[in-house]
Design a binder for these strands. Structure first.
Lengths: 352, 352
DNA sequence: AGCGTCACAGCAAGCGCTTTCTATCCTAGG
DNA sequence: CCTAGGATAGAAAGCGCTTGCTGTGACGCT
C-alpha cells in the first residue's frame, strides 16, 4: 500500500541501506547512485516514515515550544522567534526540524502532560516560555520532568521564565522585578502617590515579580501602600476592565493605575474612559511588555518593553546548540521603560 | 539505559504484551494484573517510546495546525480553539494527542515542507488555517499533498481557507467577500463616495475576496472606483500606516479608508491622526476580523466580526472525527458587521 | 460428569528504518 | 604484476512496541 524504503531500493536497484544513506546524506554514495535513488524517490512519491526513522536512529527532529496562551501575542512573538531559529522549514538552520508549539492554557497538568508527550516523542529540544506556576508540588513535578529530559539528552531552555535549578535547563529570564520597579519609579517621579495595581493571576512568577518591583519602588519612595490598591486578575483586557472599576470603587482618589501587562492596561483605559476619567489628566495608566498594539492606543501606552523576539531567538539558538548557553546557564534580560502619552503628572501633584 | 516495555514487564512479572495492553487499555486485563503493571510503570518511571509505538501501531497521535503567522492573534485565536478541541492534554477528548502548531510565515515552501513533515510523522489530522496563496503552481502542489494525506487516512480540515476541490479536505471557509461587501455598503450608506482600500498581500485568497466584496458594493452603488484608491501591503499595522499616508497623498479628498484587517486599520488610524485628520469626522476607518483589541481602539473600530473561535473549534472537532463534516465538505461562515465609533457620515455628505 | 465458553495472558511476527560490519571493486604504489 | 587501501554497496541485526493467534484454566450449561 504505502511506499517504503525497500520499494525505492528495488526501483533504484540498490539496497535499502543505500537509499537510507542517500536520504540522510552522511555517508559516501556515488553521484550516479544517488541520482538513481533520488529519481526513484521522486517517481514513487516516497515519504520517509518518521516514527520508523526515529525509532531506528533513536533520535527525533521534534522541538517543542510550550506557551501559556497561544492567542496572546506575548507568546506568539516569542514562539515565532524561537521557531525561526529552530530552523523548521525554510529557516537558515540545516536539518529540517518540526518545531511544534503546545498551548498549555496556563494549566499545570497540561504543562506536565505536554512535557510527557514530548519526552515520549524523544524531542530533540524543549523550550518553555512565560511565567511558571508557583505551586510547590507542581514546580517539583516540572523540575523532575525537566531533569529527566535533560538527562535523556533533550536540550531544555526556559524563555521568559525563571531558572529551574538542578534540572540542567538553561534560562533566559526577564527582569520583571526591575522593570516593574522602574515603571513605578517613573510614575512616582511624575508626582503620583496613590497608585492602583492590577496584578496577574496569583501563584505566577511573572505576577509576583512585577508586583514586587512595584512595591519596592513604593517603599523606596516612602509610600505606604493601601492593601486595597492591589487587585488580582487574569492577563487579559476584560480582567483589566473589571479590576479598574473595582479599584475606582475602593479608592476614587487614585491617580495612576499600573497594569500587569498591556492587554490589562487597555482594559483599564476602557474602564477609565467609561467612568469619565481622562488619561492621563485624571489617571495615568501603565502597562508591561510593549506589545505591537500598545503604541496605537490613545493615548499611547507607557510600558516596559521586553525584547520578546530577541529572547526567543536566543532561546531557539541555544535549544539548537547553535549558541553557547550563558555562563551558569542563566541570563537575565532587562526591559526598557517606554514613556508615552498614557502617563503624566497627576492633576494635584502639589497636594501629595 | 532507558527503561523499556520489557523492563516493566519483567518487574511486573508479565509479558510485554500485557503491559502494552494495560497502557493502551483496549483489551481485557484482570484488575490485579493491571495494578501490578501500573505499579511497575510508576516505580520505573517508564515513558512509552512514541516512535516505536507509532511504528508498530501504524498510527500517531500528532495533529498539525498550520498558521501563517503565529504572532498574529487572528491565527492564535483559531489555533487555540482548534487545539482545545483536539483534546491535547486536559481537553475533553479522550486519547491524548499532541496538537502542534506550525508557523509557515506565509511562505509557500514552508507550508509544503511542514505538510511533508506532518505526512512523514503520519499525523492523525492536519488543519490549515487562513488564506491560501493563489499561485497556481503552489496551489497544485498543496492540493496534491493534501490529497495524498487524505488518502493515507489523515483527516484534513481547512479553517478560514477556501475549499480545495478533489482533495478530500473539509473546508470551513469565511465569507470574506460578503463581509467586505456589507462593510463597504455600510460606509456608502453613511454617505461616503470616495473610499480608499488598503488590501493585504496580492495573491492571497483572503485579500482578493475582501477586495472583491468591497468593489461589488461600490459597483452596486454606482460608484466608479479610482485605481489609485487601492493600495496593497502586508497584514500588519506598519503596512496600514504607510498605505494610509500613500492613499492620502494620492487623493486627499478620501472620506473613508477600509483596511484589510484590524491591525492594518490601527495603523491607518495612527497615520490619520498624525496627519491631523479626525476619525470619523474627517475620515472614517473600517477594519476586518474584530480582534480583541479592536474594541479598545479610540474610537472603537467598525469592523466585521469573524467567529474565529467557533470556526476553529468546529474545525478541531471535525479533524478529530467528533463532528460530521458539513454537507459537501464545505461550510461557509458569515462575518457580522460591527458598527462602532470609527465610522460616521462624511462631513460634506450632501455634496456627494 | 463432560464439554463448550469465556476471560486472560503469552508468543512471536513484524512495523520501516538505521547502522555496524563485511564484501567488492578499483586505483595506485612497490 | 601483486597487493594495500580507499571508496562504495550490501547483509543483517536490531530499535521498542503492537497485535493476531494460540494456549490455559475456570466456569457454567446440559
Amino acid at each position: 500500500m504505502t511506499v517504503t524504503l525497500a520499494d525505492v531500493a528495488a526501483r533504484a536497484q540498490v539496497s535499502p541501506a543505500t537509499v537510507s544513506r542517500v536520504l540522510n546524506g552522511n555517508y559516501p554514495v556515488a553521484a550516479s547512485t544517488r541520482e538513481r535513488v533520488l529519481k526513484a524517490v521522486d517517481e514513487l512519491d516516497y515519504v520517509l516514515n518518521g516514527p520508523a526513522s526515529s525509532l531506528a536512529a533513536a533520535t527525533s527532529d521534534l522541538v517543542g515550544i510550550l506557551v501559556n496562551d497561544i492567542a496572546d501575542p506575548f507568546f506568539g512573538i516569542m514562539a515565532s522567534a524561537i521557531q525561526s531559529e529552530i530552523g523548521g522549514p525554510g529557516g537558515r538552520a540545516g536539518g529540517e526540524r518540526l518545531a511544534v508549539v503546545c498551548n498549555t492554557g496556563g494549566s499545570p497538568e497540561r504543562e506536565l502532560t505536554y512535557l510527557t508527550l514530548l519526552q515520549r516523542q524523544r524531542a530533540a529540544a524543549v523550550v518553555l516560555t512565560g511565567g511558571a506556576m508557583e505551586d510547590a508540588q507542581h514546580a517539583a513535578a516540572v523540575a523532575a520532568k525537566l531533569r529527566r529530559l535533560t538527562e535523556a539528552g533533550t536540550r531544555v531552555v526556559l524563555c521568559g521564565r525563571p531558572p529551574a535549578p538542578d534540572t540542567g535547563a538553561v534560562a533566559i529570564a526577564f527582569d520583571n522585578r526591575g522593570g516593574g520597579q522602574r515603571l513605578t519609579e517613573h510614575l512616582i517621579g511624575l508626582g503620583h502617590r496613590r497608585l492602583g495595581y492590577i496584578a496577574g493571576p496569583e501563584e505566577r512568577t511573572t505576577t509576583r515579580h512585577r508586583l514586587e518591583g512595584h512595591r519596592a519602588a513604593l517603599a523606596a519612595a516612602g509610600i505606604s501602600e493601601d492593601p486595597g490598591w492591589t487587585v488580582h486578575g487574569r492577563y487579559d483586557r476584560t480582567s483589566g476592565y473589571e479590576a479598574t472599576l473595582e479599584l475606582l470603587r475602593r479608592d476614587p482618589s487614585l491617580t495612576a493605575v499600573v497594569a500587569a501587562n498591556d492587554s490589562v492596561a487597555l482594559g483599564a483605559c476602557a474602564a477609565l474612559r467609561e467612568s469619565g476619567l481622562g488619561i492621563p489628566d485624571d489617571v495615568s495608566v501603565a502597562g508591561f511588555d510593549d506589545l505591537p498594539f500598545s503604541v496605537d492606543a490613545v493615548p499611547a501606552l507607557t510600558t516596559v518593553r521586553l525584547p520578546l523576539a530577541d529572547a526567543g531567538a536566543r532561546a531557539g539558538r541555544i535549544a539548537m546548540g547553535r549558541e553557547e548557553p550563558p555562563p551558569g546557564g542563566i541570563a537575565t534580560v532587562r526591559g526598557e521603560l517606554m514613556v508615552r502619552g498614557s502617563s503624566g503628572a497627576p492633576r494635584q501633584s502639589a497636594s501629595a
